[in-house]
């Protein structure tokens, strides 16, 4: 089943409240996905030339300060660290590839959740309410945020199998549905050099978008190609550094509702998740069409 929710601010008046608004949306979708939840926040940008990496470490306290210090020395810059439960967001002056390599060298036990100027991905098994509390979502600030509540179908209930999936710098995807050609696609993508870490079908969709965009596609083009190459049921919500996109498969079995005001675009599997948003009674509320790419902001 699964629930997906997204909130993209067109004006920044609500930036300070985005965590509070989003937390209610995520918790509201518990019935559709009680076993794990996650979200991608597009928050503050680090200093010029810096990028943020969101890292997870399972089990026990982890000495994030020492890791940050050592990354700072390696890249000859100031490395800022923000710890959140068993996660940390570290900002350093580096490029994506060098940073990923440095982290793999320093501690292969760490999991990179996302890398980008703005994106921070957090996800865990447990109820959406517990994820909201664990990561303090209600206090978070940002311009947009995308989340997922999972009821596992195609693979096991694990943190790695939870959503969102990072799809490259500042890109992420959440998925409601199931893909039927993910095994063949996974093999093809792995041959093309895309690393797929889990048995999860949605990660294959994320990897597919990453591959297309590495070939020079815009997100719009990559999503249009996905309509041809992905077989199965899906409603996707996709985040970029400055934009937001929604795509449903041509049959459109998986639900989605969009609401738009002058202030924001909100998306959810069911309208209930949007019921508490400010100005929702005056919002334009509709069901997105099948096989049509919807984008806002700099998602093209």
């Amino acid at each position: 089943m699964c629930g997906i929710v997204g909130l993209y601010l067109k004006k920044q008046d609500l930036a300070g409240e985005i965590g509070e608004l989003f937390a209610s949306m995520l918790v509201c979708m518990t019935g559709r996905g009680p076993d794990s939840a996650g979200f991608a926040l597009y928050g503050n940008e680090p200093a010029a030339g810096h990028i943020k990496v969101t890292l997870r470490h399972d089990g026990g306290d982890y000495d994030w300060q020492t890791l940050a210090h050592s990354l700072g020395e390696f890249f000859a810059c100031e490395a800022k660290v923000q710890i959140n439960a068993n996660y940390a967001v570290i900002a350093v002056r580096a490029d994506e590839e060098a940073l990923a390599q440095a982290l793999a060298d320093k501690d292969p036990g760490l999991t990179i959740m996302s890398i980008g100027r703005r994106i921070e991905i957090f996800k865990e098994i447990g109820s959406p309410e517990s994820i909201v509390d664990r990561f303090g979502i209600r206090g978070m600030r940002g311009t947009h945020i995308i989340g997922h509540t999972r009821m596992a179908t195609e693979s096991a209930v694990t943190t790695d199998g939870s959503h969102p999936f990072s799809t490259g710098m500042d890109l992420c995807l959440v998925h409601n549905g199931s893909l039927s050609n993910h095994n063949r696609l996974r093999t093809n993508l792995e041959r093309a050099g895309i690393e797929i870490r889990t048995e999860n079908d949605s990660e294959v969709a994320a990897g597919y978008l990453m591959w297309r965009m590495q070939q020079g596609d815009t997100l719009q083009e990559a999503l249009e190609a996905a309509l041809e190459d992905l077989d199965g049921f899906y409603t996707f919500a996709i985040g970029t550094a400055d934009g937001f996109a929604v795509l449903r498969d041509p049959i459109a079995c998986k639900p989605a509702v969009l609401a738009e005001t002058d202030d924001y675009v909100a998306m959810a599997s069911e309208f209930q998740a949007l019921a508490d948003l400010p100005g929702i009674d005056e919002a334009d509320v509709w069901e997105p069409k099948p096989a049509q790419v919807y984008t806002w902001g700099a998602a093209n």
Partner: peptide
Amino acid sequence: HGMVGVGVAENMMSGIVRVKGHASQ
């Protein structure tokens, strides 16, 4: 006076249902 989700008036027998907004599937 708003939008309706999936299956508004499904299996209706008689009467009138009016939706002022959009309807889902």
